[in-house]
Nucleic acid binder design. Structure first.
Lengths: 326, 326
DNA sequence: CTGAAAGCGCTAACAC
DNA sequence: GTGTTAGCGCTTTCAG
């Protein structure tokens, strides 16, 4: 293998301990020794072996990130920002795309434990993974209940759902449909649905709910959307994610439906990507930067003190962003 | 810490060696012993410590992925697919967003070396990082020259540039502009530019080249595009990435420019994301799946045998995908 | 077929 | 201020 601590020690004419002390800024060292060691390290281009170091029980400075997939703009952005901030704090990120696959998520959890990561941030969307109950590792969850004692960072999906629906109502919408994911209780999209339902109820309107299973390809979804748009009598659509909203916009255009004249559309997520490349879309903005800050803050707290009391739910506010589709 | 090998040994009433053998399917064991050990491992919910294991010089099963940022759909898709395939092969992925930052990329390189990753796949876009010269680790590069002896996997950007430009010409384009990145020699977008220039030359047309520095925000880019569209006399635009093409489409719509009537647009990349959510965009398809397969194949070869002879450049073909913008 | 013992590269009492 | 020594959790000769 490469250059090791003892090589440096030999070259600097000191003991391994001394080198270790220099590296870890620990104990009393004479400036002369420090310089000697530094010189030797540079000459040999020495890199400490993190494996050996974490064997002593030192932190690995490794954080596991479990998300459905970074190929989705929302999670891509979240992952990218998490990675950046973690790196600034001296952590490396192990990326785990759970791909909405329970088995894979379980495997990852095991793997992360074996790799002795210092902590995990999990934002995947699989339910019922008992392993989370006793990983014995600091974990913070994004937007989903994992297990007792694991804090959840999320935004106020119920209010988000209400906000979007209210907007559509205020702009004259009376036949307001919702396009959303599968009907799992406890998923964030389901809370958005509840918000929608509550507003419709207040205005005594008939809900029109369309569920799209996660497994459905965008192409299939698009086809179904086309069906809905051409057959049903709808004047407004609330999509519980922006990508679905884009599909609606595309299909509406194909069908010659005027937006927002004949149909108003509001999405959900409001990533920077959407704001940059789809500024016309009205949407509910999730506070991604704040998610990142909070998730990392909480994780650091847990890492530094496994017993800190944390709230079980942190709910950040969302905002409506007016585009031209509503 | 957690349960360790000796705990399992004690519980199974055997030596540590035996447990190690069972785990590594190594040497002669009686079925009885194997069963005993497995039983003990399960009862204790034992996870081998990968740190300790890789200390003996065993592989870490860790691969470093260096890309500009997974928040970009192209790299998000690439990273996600790489991660998936690597996981299937038993590798974990350390994600490194270089963020177009040379310093960060260097730091990452050091960090990956310290973490004894088995190999690296680097597709970042920073030039002149001498550290690549002697990482002493298997590396495969995506779409960029890193150092002597590091194989490059890329697609045929020159042909891609030609293909796009030819298409525009065949559809009647005579005032064909190109929107591209900064003018770094050796970058893939620059090869696309060369392809464009060669076609224009063949047809004796005047090139119209617009460079956008990487640092420019999409918003700034959009403003500049609006300028160009309203002031210049252009009938076709080749954008060397799809996102820029989307910006053009947006601004053209704002300005009431008919597409493809008044202006034809062709993008570049053709991610699944674009194909799903922007099917109307004509674009040049990069073979992402083949990139992934080839990158990983080559890396595995280097990992298994540091001295295998590999070509210095693997160039995959691109395809034109007809949408409605050209 | 199984175990004892040495050692991977590094750190941390404990001495001097 | 600095070195000696033991040991982190695991693998691997070498014996038996």
């Amino acid at each position: 293998m490469g250059v090791k601590l003892t090589d440096v020690a030999k070259r600097a004419g000191v003991s391994a301990t001394t080198v270790s002390r220099v590296i870890n800024h620990y104990g009393y060292l004479s400036q002369k020794t420090i310089d000697k060691v530094h010189k030797a390290m540079e000459e040999l281009n020495y890199q400490p072996n993190s494996m050996a170091r974490s064997l002593q029980g030192k932190d690995t400075q490794l954080i596991g990130l479990i998300f459905p997939t970074v190929s989705h703009p929302f999670f891509g952005e979240l992952a990218s920002k998490m990675e950046t901030k973690l790196f600034e704090k001296g952590y490396k990120t192990i990326l785990c795309d759970s791909a909405n696959n329970k088995e894979k998520e379980r495997d990852y959890l095991k793997m992360l434990a074996a790799n002795k990561v210092d902590g995990i941030i999990a934002g995947a969307h699989n339910l019922g993974i008992p392993e989370y109950e006793n990983v014995g590792l600091p974990i913070i969850s994004f937007d989903r209940h994992l297990a007792e004692g694991i804090p959840i960072v999320s935004s106020d999906s119920y209010q988000g759902g209400r906000l979007a629906t209210e907007q559509l109502y205020q702009r004259g919408g009376r036949k307001i449909a919702i396009l959303t994911g599968t009907n799992e209780s406890d998923s964030p999209t389901n809370k958005r649905l509840e918000g929608y339902l509550s507003v419709l109820k207040e205005h005594q309107l008939e809900p029109m709910v369309y569920h799209f299973p996660l497994e459905h390809s965008p192409f299939l979804k698009a086809t179904e959307i086309r069906q809905i748009l051409s057959k049903e009598d709808i004047d407004s659509i609330f999509c519980t994610d922006d990508l679905t909203a884009i599909l609606v916009l595309n299909k509406a255009q194909e069908l010659g439906i005027d937006i927002p004249g004949d149909l108003k559309v509001i999405g959900y997520d409001g990533t920077e990507f959407i704001q940059n490349y789809f500024p016309q879309l009205s949407t509910i903005l999730q506070p991604i930067d704040q998610f990142v800050d909070l998730l990392i803050d909480l994780l650091m707290k847990r890492i530094n003190n496994a017993d800190v009391e944390l709230d079980s739910l942190y709910q950040l506010p969302v905002r409506f962003m007016q585009g031209q589709t509503s």
